[in-house]
């Protein structure tokens, strides 16, 4: 048993975090809101230079051969910075699915391109009626009744839909499944894709919650009312302390889920759902209490707080809303009486 990240994992996360804090500023995010396609090719190129797209690609195909556990702290940082790019869809979700069948030349070729930062893949799943960043994708990984399809961008019709979060570029995708586009009929691949999507959301929600905590502790330390910093009032302190408690107890739940997913644990779906609910609860509280301790300024467009609150509110419905994930946990625990023995904590993988 070793419930810690390795030095390599921590160092890489630190490098990425430093990069994001320097490059992905609220100013950049706001300037991209005003652009037609909402994305920065320069930023995408720099993220590729850091090696991020190569992370889930097997070493034999030019990648780093890493996986879900490595992604977790990185995705948290993506949330912390409210990264305006669906890089996780290409590099974690799609690459993760493609890496399951490297014997397939289509997968191998595409993985090589992903590792080189030369391919972008949008991911569509019935849990999400719309597909993020479909306008920037070379291929789309789309789930149909008969399996997972890999569809060239030239074969889809896109219709943009506005999100509460101006950084999110969402599209209704019209397409026809063909025998040639089908990648796999194996429902387990699609199921793992879904769980990865949900875990990626959970990780970002935790990072976003942390960002709101940081912004709020800073602001309440500076803003004065009644002759003192508002952070000296217990009511203000307690609101933020409550969020800190929720965030702290979401983190290990996410880590178990990532580990289970990476190791093909049959209970991974349950653990992921637990993570998604815990992260969603923490993030909802972070947004609610974050705006409250800011007062009226928190309700403005000008204040950067809105960037992070809106990402939370938008992501809270993505890859299965909390109600769906809670149902998966309750089905396991209550209906199947699972997870009731202390030895079950880490399930079959241990």
């Amino acid at each position: 048993m070793d419930f810690t990240f390795s030095d390599d994992q921590l160092e890489f996360t630190d490098t990425v975090a430093k990069f994001l804090r320097k490059e992905v500023t609220p100013t950049l995010i706001r300037s991209l809101w005003e652009t037609e396609d909402g994305r920065s090719p320069e930023l995408a190129a720099k993220l590729a230079e850091l090696g991020l797209p190569a992370l889930s690609v097997p070493e034999a195909l030019g990648g780093l051969g890493l996986g879900d556990v490595d992604w977790l702290p990185l995705a948290r940082e993506f949330g912390y910075s409210a990264l305006p790019d669906a890089l996780l869809d290409t590099a974690w979700l799609a690459a993760g699915a493609l890496a399951e069948d490297t014997g397939n030349p289509v997968c191998a070729e595409l993985l090589t391109a992903i590792a080189a930062g030369e391919a972008r893949i949008a991911v569509g799943h019935p849990a999400n009626p719309l597909v993020e960043d479909a306008h920037r994708a070379d291929r789309l990984l789309l789930l149909h009744d008969d399996g997972l399809h890999l569809v060239p961008a030239s074969e889809v019709r896109l219709e943009a839909r506005g999100s509460l979060d101006p950084s999110r570029r969402l599209f209704a995708v019209g397409w026809q499944p063909r025998a040639e586009t089908r990648l796999t009929a194996d429902p387990r691949v699609a199921a793992r894709l879904f769980d990865r999507g949900a875990l990626a959301v959970a990780a970002q929600l935790v990072g976003l919650s942390q960002r709101i905590l940081d912004l709020s502790t800073q602001y309440t330390g500076e803003r004065q009312q009644f002759g003192k910093a508002i952070g000296t009032f217990q009511a203000v302190k307690h609101r933020l302390a409550d969020v800190a408690v929720l965030v702290e107890f979401a983190k290990p739940v996410l880590e178990r889920a990532a580990y289970a997913l990476a190791n093909g644990d049959p209970l991974a779906p349950v653990f992921v759902s637990h993570a998604r609910v815990a992260a969603g609860d923490a993030a909802a509280a972070a947004a609610r209490n974050g705006i409250q301790v800011h007062g009226a300024i928190g309700y403005t467009w000008e204040l950067d707080l809105q960037i992070f609150m809106k990402r939370i509110w938008a992501l809270d419905g993505a890859w299965g809303p909390r109600r769906f994930h809670k149902a998966r946990v309750s089905d396991f625990v209550v209906d199947r009486a699972g997870g009731l023995d202390p030895g079950d904590l880490f399930a079959a993988a241990s």
Partner: peptide, 14 residues
Amino acid sequence: ETAMAILGAEAELL
């Protein structure tokens, strides 16, 4: 908040 929870993935749509 309850309405948003019911709406799920659609909640964010303008």
